[in-house]
Design a protein around this nucleic acid. Structure first.
Lengths: 186, 186
DNA sequence: TGGAAAACTTACTAACTAGTAAGTAAATTT
DNA sequence: AAATTTACTTACTAGTTAGTAAGTTTTCCA
């Protein structure tokens, strides 16, 4: 039984983590933006670690459901859906992905959050591996080396491109996506 | 005439920015680690913006000199030198690259630092574009699309891989590098 | 309708943040 | 040798941080 307030806090915290990172996420910012007091946030998330862990877990769950909803789609549709999801981060406040944020905040993260983020990234890599593998055997994707190797490259390239787009403009992300798709074309 | 102390502060700050990011960089950490007082750091860098800007500028200069020192080398050697530099970050305290750090800290950065980081990234992209172009015309590199497009992909992939390696281990970076080199092979 | 549990607010703490004003010692210049 | 500049230290400020204890209101259930 998750309360509505708790959900709202977690949602705002998610946005903030993707924008300013875990260390700069503050209870004060959350409470003032939601029209409540500092201690109210602590009521739902006693420690910052609780909040941060919930934020990463929720994002992880969103991805899991996202992947499940695409189960019967083609490899191309799966890839496009993922690219669109990332592009939305870009257009909606220049957010970076949760995994990228966790990776750059890594040194400031409690172990529990580090572990959750690592698991999350591993699952995304595995998902990409299966998508690329299926696409290759269906003849709609082409690439050198293993699907796992290519999946690692694609995952890191997208995370990096999302960040670099902040510095030099959204076109950078679009160009990286175009290059990735061009290289996958048989 | 840069004083030795100022250099030491900037060097330590560079390390810290690559490890914990600009927002978590503190005068206290710097002064205590260098055996001096808070105000001594402020003497050399009056504001945090001054310090942060110097850090990015210095890293930018390091790259410029790095590129100049490789002027007469082959495209393959240039690429390898860049990859080795990034690998050193990884092995020396799991640091991420300055550009990646600036990109993820972007929302907390003063305009002056944002601008410097953007210029820095643009120059790295241009350098990669020239390296890839030369490699292609010499027949040692092969890739689809434009050299600029491929340069964007490579730059973002390396920055992302460096970050992801924090979460799932250094092998991830090595695997991404291997995939990139495999795809460049004619 | 009464009691318990849930969801808060008020009021606070200790630690940390960047930044400053004033004083001091050492080096450099005139 | 005197004056000036450089490189600090001491001591402080105002603001922010996560976190807590105790009290209050609201919701829900028996």
């Amino acid at each position: 039984m998750r309360s509505e307030t708790k959900d709202k806090i977690a949602e705002l915290a998610t946005e903030l983590v993707q924008q300013v990172g875990y260390p700069s996420l503050s209870y004060q910012q959350i409470s003032s933006q939601l029209g409540m007091k500092n201690a109210a946030v602590h009521y739902h998330f006693p420690s910052k670690e609780d909040l941060g862990l919930d934020v990463v877990r929720r994002d992880h769950e969103v991805f899991t459901k996202f992947a499940a909803s695409l189960q019967d789609k083609s490899p191309e549709e799966k890839l496009d859906a993922f690219l669109a999801m990332y592009q939305q981060y870009l257009e909606n406040g220049n957010r970076i992905c949760m995994i990228g944020a966790s990776a750059s905040d890594y040194k400031q993260l409690p172990d529990s959050i580090r572990l959750e983020a690592a698991t999350y990234l591993s699952e995304v890599k595995e998902w990409f591996t299966r998508v690329l593998e299926a696409g290759k055997s269906e003849g709609v994707f082409q690439f050198k080396g293993s699907a796992a190797g290519k999946a690692g490259l694609v995952t890191s390239a997208l995370a990096g491109a999302l960040q670099h787009a902040r510095l030099i403009g959204n076109d950078h992300y679009l160009a990286v996506v175009a290059q990735l798709k061009l290289e996958l074309k048989p």
